[in-house]
């Protein structure tokens, strides 16, 4: 018996190793059972909350990168939203005739060529006759009037820019309520001049200028710019400098305004001229 004890003490390390190893291997082979035990699942939930903290911390480390990515995405979405908002706020449904039928249709287009550094600037668009674009249609963005279609080919249109010293667009002062032609004076690309506002009109700096709607080219109430300064010229009329909302250097996407009853209006105008 003594010998047996001595022997066991002699191999006690090996013995404990074998016992523990057998336990480990038993756990290993019956693992799926222990995985589901309460203790293990409790430990897993503790581990889960620890991991959450670590992930929170790790997220701080790449905040800068995430920020840059989100900012880029934000810009893209902003641009997209601006387009939708414009289409929505001035959608055909909002400008209707007395019977509630839409008066205007919009054709989206991208600018393929543009200039702001000449006195007679033109814009090329990637929409043409195939997209039902026709001469004398208005071109707008959410920031205002861009120009008027001069000529079209099958897939392209050439537009006379607002920055064209020979072209006039009829606009209205929102607070004063007076109408007049807006014309570019050829000085800077973000300012134009409103003529023919009578002296008795209540002109104020900061007043908004919108399209008048007195034409079959532009829908009414598209914002164009704000009054920057004004002075009396040629006796009885104000000459008002307007700061334009549209940044002609940056515009990329525009909408072409199609007046749905333009043929009827043209026919009437021709009849009038005949009489």
């Amino acid at each position: 018996m003594d010998n047996l004890f001595r022997f066991l003490i002699g191999i006690r390390v090996l013995l404990s190793f074998v016992i523990l190893e057998v336990i480990a291997l038993l756990l290993f082979t019956a693992s799926s059972y222990y995985q589901q035990s309460v203790v293990v699942s409790k430990l897993h939930s503790i581990r889960g909350s620890l991991h959450e903290q670590v992930t929170h911390f790790a997220q701080y480390l790449d905040l800068r990168e995430t920020n840059a990515m989100l900012a880029a995405e934000n810009t893209a979405l902003h641009n997209e939203l601006a387009c939708y908002r414009f289409v929505h706020s001035t959608s055909p449904g909002t400008v209707t005739n007395h019977a509630g039928a839409p008066l205007f249709n919009y054709i989206p287009a991208n600018i393929t060529d543009n200039s702001v550094n000449k006195q007679h600037n033109y814009i090329m668009l990637d929409a043409g006759a195939a997209d039902h674009v026709a001469p004398d249609m208005g071109v707008v963005t959410q920031n205002g009037v861009i120009g008027i279609v001069m000529a079209v080919t099958e897939h392209y249109a050439i537009v006379k820019s607002l920055l064209h010293t020979d072209w006039r667009c009829n606009v209205r002062l929102v607070h004063a309520g007076d109408f007049g032609p807006l014309q570019w004076d050829g000085l800077t690309y973000n300012e134009a001049v409103l003529h023919d506002i009578p002296q008795h009109s209540n002109v104020q700096t900061g007043d908004t200028v919108v399209t008048s709607g007195y034409s079959s080219i532009f829908p009414p109430d598209i914002p164009v710019g704000v009054v920057k300064s004004y002075e009396i010229k040629r006796g009885n009329f104000y000459e008002i400098r307007i700061r334009l909302f549209a940044d002609f250097k940056k515009i990329r996407h525009v909408n072409i305004v199609s007046f749905l009853y333009r043929h009827e209006v043209n026919t009437l105008n021709e009849l009038r001229d005949e009489y």
Partner: peptide, 20 residues
């Protein structure tokens, strides 16, 4: 084993061999 959500007993068995 528990923390790396592995099979229970796997690292245990290997570490016992290492310790031995």
């Amino acid at each position: 084993d528990i923390f790396s959500m592995d099979i229970i007993g796997l690292h245990t068995a290997a570490l016992l061999v290492l310790a031995y």
